[in-house]
């Protein structure tokens, strides 16, 4: 039945695709091309949708803008703060959950809860947790003799506050992926190693770690890419500001600020293009390494 498709087959095929193609064409494919061009709009009138001139002005602007560099730095600090911590904590929890215990399902359900939770709503809860006078975090820290920290009003502490909340929120998703990866490891390897007298730690180090490495790599890239795109968390945690004194402004926040508050569509598009390039590099790494397999 694999003969060459006829004209009729082609018409039938596209009639099934049509609804999805219209939506994806207009709202996913076309805007990618358009966004690329928009970053070169040097002089643009949004209300009439007329471009008066094209040029590199937007890129020149952002690369001279200290705000943009600050957003880049903050984003990298955020990524470095979230990714390793989130990956290692969720890996440990996944391994514990995988060790034939009772209530495993209940624990899994609890760890996954933040994933289904509205970022905006839970960020407001965290605002309350971080409250400098009546928040429980400062209260707990008080037990250890630590004096109250101005989590949300001190520029020094705004990034740590954001990072802690985002690690908390990201754990469940990573744990589920790690559990799936762990369950894909053939139990016979463990049995064979046990017969040969390998200790628990040796079994972990020589079986679990190498065989889980593709999953670990995949999860890391996913968390990394998502961390580069952080926005909702910043907006909601700092009440629609990028932290005290712009101390928690990230790339997407910069794009939002230029686009939504300052109506600088070209500059915002140029910044979005830089974000795309960063993410694209990591996607390519993922595809390249993923093909070669981190496995043995």
């Amino acid at each position: 039945m694999n003969q060459k498709p006829t004209l009729k087959d082609t018409l039938i095929g596209y009639s099934y695709l049509l609804p999805a193609l219209i939506i994806l064409g207009v709202f996913s494919v076309y805007p990618i091309i358009k966004s690329f061009f928009m970053s070169f709009y040097a002089d643009y009138d949004f209300f009439k949708d007329i471009v008066h001139s094209y040029g590199f002005d937007n890129f020149i602007y952002i690369f001279q803008d200290t705000e943009f560099y600050k957003s880049l730095t903050n984003t990298f600090i955020f990524v470095i703060g979230v990714v390793p911590a989130s990956i290692s904590i969720s890996l440990v929890i996944a391994i514990l959950l995988n060790s034939k215990i009772k209530f495993g399902k209940l624990f899994r359900t609890i760890y996954f809860l933040p994933f289904v939770t509205s970022v905006v709503a839970i960020a407001i809860v965290w605002q309350w947790i971080y409250h400098s006078e009546y928040g429980i975090l400062n209260y707990f820290l008080g037990w250890f003799g630590i004096s109250p920290i101005e989590w949300l009003n001190d520029p020094k502490w705004s990034m740590p506050a954001l990072i802690i909340m985002c690690i908390w929120k990201s754990l469940g998703y990573n744990i589920i992926l790690f559990l799936a990866g762990l369950q894909n490891i053939n139990p016979q390897y463990y049995l064979a190693a046990q017969i040969d007298g390998a200790s628990k730690f040796k079994r972990f180090w020589h079986i679990t770690v190498p065989l889980l490495s593709p999953t670990t790599f995949f999860v890391s890239i996913v968390v990394l890419i998502n961390s580069f795109k952080v926005f909702d968390e910043v907006f909601a945690l700092f009440n629609g500001r990028p932290g005290p004194g712009y101390s928690a402004q990230t790339i997407v926040y910069y794009i939002f600020e230029k686009f939504y508050n300052e109506w600088e569509f070209g500059i915002a598009s140029a910044a979005a293009f830089v974000l795309f390039i960063i993410i694209f590099i990591f996607t390519l790494i993922q595809l390249y390494v993923g093909k070669r397999k981190v496995n043995y």
């Binding site: 994806l24 207009v26 709202f27 996913s28 494919v29 076309y30 805007p31 990618i32 358009k34 966004s35 928009m38 949004f46 949708d49 890419i225 580069f228 795109k229 926005f231 997407v252 794009i255 686009f259 569509f265 915002a268 598009s269 979005a272 293009f273 974000l275 795309f276 993410i279 694209f280 996607t283």
Partner: peptide
Amino acid sequence: AILLGTMMVPGEMLLIPNFVT
């Protein structure tokens, strides 16, 4: 393949052109 390729592009990049559309 083209549609799969679009998944690599962050949704934030589509925000501005989609707003204009």
